[in-house]
């Protein structure tokens, strides 16, 4: 029971463990560099939290399909809908083509809205994934859905994502990778919807936010390390208690 409960929320469990580890290191060590390491671990847990929010069940990396037109997402969308209607039997070919062509140049912004009810579809997808097990990716993809992270959709998201993660063919860092690598291509090939060609993307916004947050984190870490270097130059130590002792001695000396 409890194992299942945790396994369904594996990402969030990892986030909590990392967050607490980071804070514990931060507050328990007296070494200034180790404190910064703890701080970085703490921040990293937040990156993971955001990436988990952005995952959509069965969604592929948010990279525009090349055959959707030259970067005009909306026009391209209509075009492919027509295409699907004309060639009723040719979808599998299109899907394969898409998977092959994907790495080429499709980095245009995409339209993330759709009429489908996000909550329902996401739940349906999650259920199908759960019942059919890790091999159910095509089934999950078959349900048209949006990436709008409505509160109930989220739980379904994480559940479906977990299945995928355990199966080992899609983990979070891969999905956040802007360069479509072999694994991501695989997923794209598997889960591209067969009926209406509505492609499901993961929500790209958290990725972008976290890219910014990573930059902020790196800046903080570098300023922190620079301060530690200066402290080492002036005090000759990077242990917190030794620094306090030195300060106390100078204070006692001057007054």
């Amino acid at each position: 029971m409890i194992v299942e409960f945790i396994a369904e929320r594996f990402n969030y469990a990892v986030v909590i463990v990392l967050m607490m580890t980071g804070l514990y290191v931060l507050f328990s060590t007296a070494n200034l560099v180790k404190k910064l390491v703890g701080l970085t671990v703490f921040q990293t847990s937040v990156f993971l939290l955001y990436i988990s929010i952005g995952k959509v069940a069965g969604g592929q990396p948010p990279i525009l399909e090349p055959h959707y037109g030259d970067g005009h997402a909306e026009a391209g969308y209509e075009e492919t809908v027509d295409h699907g209607g004309d060639h009723g039997g040719g979808q599998t070919g299109t899907v394969e083509d898409a998977a092959e062509d994907q790495p080429a140049d499709g980095h245009a912004p995409m339209e993330s809205e759709s009429e489908a009810d996000p909550v329902q579809s996401a739940e349906a997808a999650a259920e199908s994934v759960e019942t059919a097990g890790p091999q159910a990716d095509p089934a999950a993809g078959a349900a048209p859905q949006t990436d709008d992270p409505a509160p109930t959709a989220l739980e379904a998201d994480s559940a479906a994502e977990l299945e995928a993660g355990i199966a080992g063919d899609a983990d979070v860092p891969q999905l956040s990778d802007p360069e479509p690598d072999a694994a991501a291509e695989d997923i794209a090939g598997e889960i591209l919807p067969v009926e209406d060609e509505a492609v499901v993307y993961s929500n790209p916004l958290p990725h972008v936010l976290i890219l910014t947050a990573i930059v902020v984190g790196v800046a903080t870490l570098s300023v922190g390390l620079a301060l530690v270097v200066r402290i080492r130059e002036v005090y000759g130590t990077i242990e917190d208690d030794a620094i306090s002792r030195a300060d106390y001695e100078t204070m006692a000396g001057t007054s």
């Binding site: 931060l26 404190k35 910064l36 922190g224 301060l227 200066r230 402290i231 002036v234 005090y235």
Partner: peptide
């Protein structure tokens, strides 16, 4: 320096 470091953390 230590004040800035603690503020940073």
């Amino acid at each position: 320096l230590t004040a800035a470091y603690n503020y940073l953390i």
